[in-house]
Design a protein around this nucleic acid. Structure first.
Length: 422
DNA sequence: CGGTAAATAT
DNA sequence: AATATTTACC
């Protein structure tokens, strides 16, 4: 039932890199395959008890999987005993879709009062003596990271401070240090990513300007610029899973969602991935929810529409979610003036989606547009509106939408009065 | 406390 | 060798 297959880079040889893995629509994972790939014996060097443990809860009762102590106490003072001793989960246990299904329980808050990382004692600890000078390593699972990002986004990247983030995350077993550390890296990566995005944007712009075909062959982009999957740039990727329908098995009353597509560890550690994503990933996550792909007229799967309804509690769907960064060049997608012209951004994604304005009033400053151009420009703007929405995954590695498809999607979203193309 | 650099672990 | 995470410092 959870059959899935890891999307393979469509362009073999060419380093499309992770671009093939967009966080968009449905993403299937073939557990069978994963299991197969595990060739069973591979060790699970990582035994850390990650804070996410908490995310999966204690209520799990089903599936026969034992519940791991949801509380993680600070390794320093605590007795090692506290730590779920070497939890050496068998792969089957970990991957058993059945058990995992319920394993990921809704409970998010841990009663655990103190902070701490997890329980595993670092290898080094042995040398350091029982004092366990070194704190246990926190496993920043995608889910955990997602929450982190949510919190940060909520606070504002600039105002986000460890303590506050921690608060919002509501994960007791994390310490401010953990957060600070992660935040440090988050910022770092973000900075890097932004730089890249900018680079890519300019490149894209040039390409558009000069009309050259996308970097022939290459994934598209400046030499060596591979699009990276970056969970850091929250809006574009790693968006929270849209709330499943209330009746859906995974629906959680509190809006606690699981990660959509935990393909790579939080930000795709190469090291980890190599070892087999199976080890790091499925451990904590539910099989990616068949991502109830709202059948979309568009050539790419469209995430169910969170935008229109207010976010479920605690979700990161903030009204202030305008696309903050220029979309990166997408391989295979001609960079038509698809995106909103600079300056139109503000008006583009207003929180309260009032009755769809006639296209002629949308995003684009039409003042100086000729009537003759109106249609195309407006359509572009409208398309930009759609594409710019954070919940709409970038169609990485996918074919560009046909105009027709886009139109349909636009209409579906209530943008109906689209002037005829000229 | 928060930020950042250095140290360590994997 | 590179990256992730923890620790030490300011």
């Amino acid at each position: 039932m959870l059959a899935v297959s890891l999307p393979r880079a469509s362009t073999p040889g060419e380093t499309v890199g992770e671009s093939a893995f967009d966080f968009s629509g449905d993403f299937d994972i073939d557990f069978a395959e994963l299991l197969a790939g595990l060739d069973g014996a591979d060790d699970l060097p990582d035994l850390e008890l990650d804070p996410c443990e908490i995310l999966r809860a204690d209520s799990a009762a089903a599936g026969g999987a034992e519940n791991l102590p949801a509380e993680a106490t600070d390794g320093v003072g605590a007795q090692p005993s506290e730590c779920s001793e070497e939890k050496v989960p068998s792969d089957d246990e970990i991957l058993s879709p059945g058990s995992r299904e319920e394993a990921l329980a809704p409970e998010v808050k841990s009663a655990s009062p103190d902070g701490g990382g997890g329980c595993r004692k670092p290898a080094a600890a042995k040398a350091k003596g029982s004092q366990g000078k070194r704190k246990v390593k926190v496993d920043w699972t995608p889910e955990l990271h997602r929450r982190f990002v949510e919190a940060v986004e909520q606070l504002g990247v600039d105002k986000a401070v460890p303590s506050r983030i921690l608060e919002l995350m509501g994960i007791d077993c994390l310490t401010r240090h953990n957060i600070a550390s992660h935040l440090q890296k988050y910022r770092s990566h973000r900075k890097h990513m932004l730089a890249r995005e900018a680079e890519g944007a300019s490149w894209s712009h040039r390409r558009h300007t000069y009309g050259g075909p996308a970097g022939a062959g290459a994934g598209g982009g400046p030499a060596g610029l591979k699009r990276e999957m970056s969970p850091w740039l929250a809006p574009a990727m790693g968006f929270p899973s849209p709330p499943p329908p209330p009746h859906h098995p995974h629906h959680h009353p509190h809006g606690i969602q699981h990660f959509c597509r935990p393909l790579l560890h939080v930000w795709g550690h190469p090291t980890v991935i190599d070892q087999s994503i199976a080890h790091t990933w499925p451990k904590h996550l539910l099989p990616p929810r068949p991502q109830t792909t709202v059948s979309s007229p568009l050539p790419w799967p469209v995430a169910p529409h969170p935008p229109l309804h207010p976010p479920p509690l605690g979700s990161s769907w903030q009204p202030q979610y305008p696309r903050r960064f220029p979309p990166p060049p997408v391989p295979g997608i001609p960079s038509q003036p698809i995106y909103r012209p600079a300056g139109a951004v503000q008006a583009a994604v207003p929180p309260p989606p009032p009755p769809p304005l006639p296209l002629s009033k949308r995003a684009v400053p039409l003042t100086n547009l000729q009537d003759a151009h109106l249609s195309n420009e407006c359509i572009d703007a409208a398309i930009g509106d759609v594409l710019a929405q954070p919940w709409l995954p970038l169609p990485l590695g996918l074919k560009p939408p046909s105009l027709e498809g886009v139109m349909v999607e636009l209409q579906r979203q209530g943008i109906s009065n689209i002037p005829p193309c000229t």
